Amino acid sequence: GKMTGIVKWFNADKGFGFITPDDGSKDVFVHFSAIQNDGYKSLDEGQKVSFTIESGAKGPAAGNVTSL
Rank of each mutant, 00 (worst) to 15 (best):
S55Q: 14
D13Q: 15
V65I: 06
I6F: 11
Y40H: 15
F16D: 01
D13T: 11
W9T: 03
F32E: 08
T52Y: 13
K48N: 10
F10I: 03
V28W: 03
T52A: 06
N11S: 15
Q47T: 12
V30E: 00
F51M: 04
D44F: 13
D23A: 07
D38K: 08
D38G: 10
A34K: 11
K26P: 13
G17E: 00
T20V: 14
N11M: 07
G59R: 09
F10A: 02
L43F: 06
D44T: 15
K26I: 13
V65T: 02
D27I: 08
K14L: 14
H31R: 04
V7R: 00
A62L: 02
A61R: 11
S33G: 06
F51E: 00
F29D: 01
K14S: 06
D22Y: 09
E45A: 11
L68G: 09
G63K: 15
G46D: 04
G24W: 06
K48A: 11
L68V: 08
V28L: 11
G59C: 04
K2L: 11
D38F: 07
G5W: 01
I53V: 11
H31G: 04
N11D: 10
G46Q: 06
D38Q: 12
G17I: 01
E45R: 14
A12D: 09
G15W: 02
D22S: 13
G39W: 12
F16P: 00
S55Y: 14
K14D: 05
G5N: 00
P21A: 06
Y40D: 15
M3Q: 10
S33C: 04
D23R: 06
K26G: 15
G59D: 04
F29H: 02
V28Y: 06
G24C: 04
A61L: 13
E45Q: 12
F10S: 02
F16G: 02
V30M: 07
K26R: 09
V28C: 04
A62I: 02
G1E: 11
I19D: 00
V28M: 05
G46R: 06
K58G: 15
F51P: 00
S50A: 13
Q36I: 08
L68Y: 13
A62R: 01
T52F: 09
W9C: 04
T52S: 15
S33Y: 06
G15D: 01
G39F: 11
F32H: 13
G39C: 04
D22M: 09
G1V: 14
S50T: 11
H31Y: 07
W9Q: 03
Q47W: 09
N11F: 06
G63I: 14
S50F: 06
I19C: 01
E45D: 08
L68C: 05
M3W: 13
F10W: 13
G56M: 09
F16E: 03
T4F: 14
K48F: 10
K8D: 02
S50H: 09
S67R: 12
F18P: 00
D13H: 10
K41Q: 11
W9F: 10
P21G: 03
T4Q: 07
K8E: 02
V7Y: 01
V7K: 01
Q36H: 10
G59M: 06
T4A: 07
E45V: 08
V28E: 01
T66I: 14
K48S: 09
N11I: 06
N11V: 05
D27C: 04
V65M: 02
L68K: 06
V30A: 03
Q36K: 14
T52L: 12
A62C: 04
D44A: 14
I6G: 03
A57C: 05
T20S: 11
I6N: 06
V49H: 01
